[in-house]
């Protein structure tokens, strides 16, 4: 069954700019979907339609078959968990565990369950040791993990992350990647809105490309990420490995560095030691 369905959805901003134009999208249970596009392509506007923060001007958005116009933001948010880009826009509690408990209480979980869920979420995200610390004293990476943990705590049917890698350093990105992989293993439905194709590439998600408020492509990462023109015209850049695969005329894109190395070796034969110094400018 479709968890989320957009049918001909258009949305006009207060300043009359068309932020979404005739969007059709269907997200099924257990999918990993990446929504990509440059800043201002309409990705976040799309997300905000999922939990009812925005309601379509024309068209219909359905969550589990029910139009979003018939539910409150709170009811929808319990199903579609949104993690916003800026962690500092969310954290306000005295302690990490209170921060997680906030949402659970809002959604009416009984106190005993709140405690249990808080502990479970914090442990799952490696934040168990920090449960009494003030969220504002955490590092940027820890804050991001906390923001994801506090949403997973109420087990939404879809977890949607808005630009999770913005402002994160490489180490945190590696951790995030692991975390997303685990979410997928746990059979969660995950949506990632991002312009960071280098980050998404190893995940090989179904990829939806947005540009100027429209969905301009929807397909497997392998075919989208290798389409140079499509990405360029949507304000994106091809991941280096995808560019490499195209430039080397490899029949299939390289998911990781090892694949590229293996393919190069296979194609060109074993490495000759004498050529090592012949490389580069010299």
């Amino acid at each position: 069954m479709a968890l989320i369905e957009f049918e001909n959805v258009s949305y006009k901003m207060p300043n009359e700019v068309l932020a979404l134009e005739k969007v059709n999208l269907r997200v099924d249970e257990g999918e990993l979907v990446a929504i990509v596009g440059g800043n201002g392509a309409g990705k976040t506007t799309l997300l905000k339609h999922m939990n009812g923060l925005l309601k379509p001007v024309t068209g219909t958005v359905r969550v589990k078959g029910k139009p979003t116009t018939e539910s409150s933001v709170a009811e929808l948010s319990k199903q579609i968990g949104l993690v916003f880009q800026n962690s500092d826009h969310q954290l306000f509690s005295e302690s990490v565990k209170e921060e997680v408990a906030f949402g659970l209480r809002n959604f009416g979980f009984p106190p005993s369950e709140v405690e249990e869920r808080v502990a479970r979420a914090l442990n799952a995200f490696g934040l168990g040791q920090m449960s009494d610390r003030a969220p504002l004293t955490l590092s940027g990476g820890e804050k991001k993990r906390l923001c994801i943990a506090l949403v997973t705590a109420w087990d939404p049917i879809v977890l949607a992350l808005d630009e999770p890698t913005v402002g994160q350093d490489h180490l945190n990105k590696v951790r995030l990647l692991e975390l997303v992989r685990r979410l997928i293993r746990d059979k969660r439905t995950v949506l990632i809105v991002s312009h960071d194709l280098e980050f998404l590439w190893p995940l090989q998600p179904r990829t939806v490309v947005m540009s100027g408020g429209r969905i301009v492509a929807d397909g497997p990462a392998a075919s989208i990420f290798t389409n140079f023109e499509l990405l360029e015209s949507s304000g994106l850049r091809q991941p280096q490995l995808a560019r490499l695969a195209v430039a080397l005329e490899s029949p299939s894109p390289f998911r990781d560095v090892d694949e590229a190395v293996a393919w190069l070796r296979e194609k060109n034969g074993p490495w000759s030691s004498g050529s090592q110094t012949a490389f580069g400018k010299g």
């Binding site: 933001v73 709170a74 969310q90 809002n106 959604f107 109420w154």
Partner: peptide, 16 residues
């Protein structure tokens, strides 16, 4: 703009 984003974020955590 900050205010709008904060309100959106907290509403998404069930704040009414």
């Amino acid at each position: 703009m900050d205010l709008t984003q904060i309100i959106d974020a907290q509403k998404s955590r069930g704040l009414e």
